[in-house]
């Protein structure tokens, strides 16, 4: 709609941007969502020893969206970034098998906090100059829901969080967002930062030939020092405990008994 009203010069610029749009996607290695979470006996953290790790589901949706943009001819290249110990290269390879073109691994000892991750990603954005950055809205381990918004602040770019639909129209990304009361659509000036919600798409499975091909795709390894970022702690994890157990209640035999209990015992109706 916008392009139709734009002057011919605007059209040229938009066409050029679309023709050369690179999409940057971020992925995080987390505890597989099917694995039962156990707190360590000393309550220092969640126990991640010898448990299955996987690509964060929201990141998987981000990769899928980027690959679809490439398949639709909107994006020209999909670059995937992950931050953490060497093991995260496994998740980068997964993203490459799903269709990303090349990977960047920023090697750190642990999984850094959101602001540190955003600072590292801001440097990658400055180097790579993507037209769009797609991140998962949150990681299912720390449940922070911060990195995309922080990256948008640090790069001074627009943000479309909790996206359920992304359309590139001319010089703008139209992002439909899942908000508390329903859906909201924003027009974001490109380049933009988008974070994914669950309903954005249904990620594909990687085929065996694509998994093999992914092993040969380029993967750069960098350090925070290479990027000129000094990591600083903003929080200290004091302890982790299991949640309060909810005691199972009783079975009632009939609707009449249920209503009686709710009225006279629980006193909630």
């Amino acid at each position: 709609m916008l392009t139709m009203q734009a002057a011919p010069v605007g059209l040229d610029i938009n066409a050029k941007r679309q023709n050369s749009m690179k999409v940057l996607v971020t992925v995080k290695r987390v505890l597989d969502y099917n694995v039962k979470v156990r707190v360590k006996a000393d309550r220092s953290d969640v126990d991640l020893a010898n448990v299955k790790m996987a690509l964060n589901p929201f990141c998987e949706i981000a990769v899928e969206e980027a690959v679809r943009l490439k398949e639709a001819g909107v994006a020209t290249e999909v670059v995937v970034v992950s931050i953490g110990p060497k093991a995260v290269q496994e998740q980068i390879r997964t993203a490459l098998a799903l269709g990303a073109d090349r990977g960047i691994h920023i090697e750190t000892e642990n999984s850094p906090e959101s602001l540190s991750v955003a600072k590292l990603l801001a440097k990658v954005v400055a180097d790579e100059q993507p037209g769009l950055v797609i991140l998962g809205k949150q990681a299912i381990d720390s449940d922070n829901n911060q990195t995309g918004q922080m990256l948008a602040a640090l790069t001074g770019l627009s943000q479309g969080t909790f996206a359920s639909e992304v359309k590139i129209e001319g010089d703008e990304a139209l992002v439909t967002r899942e908000v508390d009361g329903g859906l909201q659509t924003l027009g974001l000036k490109l380049p933009a930062i988008v974070t994914t919600d669950l309903r954005l798409n249904e990620p594909r499975y990687a085929s065996l030939p694509n998994i093999m091909k992914a092993k040969k795709k380029p993967l750069d390894v960098k350090t925070p020092a290479d990027l000129g970022v000094e990591l600083r702690a903003h929080t200290e994890l004091l302890s982790v405990e299991p949640p309060a157990e909810r005691k199972g209640g009783i079975k009632v035999g009939s609707v009449a008994e249920l209503v009686e209990k709710l009225k006279n015992e629980a006193k909630v109706i």
Partner: peptide, 8 residues
């Protein structure tokens, strides 16, 4: 954290 399966 972890969908409420642990409290930090």
């Amino acid at each position: 954290i972890y969908a409420g399966n642990a409290i930090a």
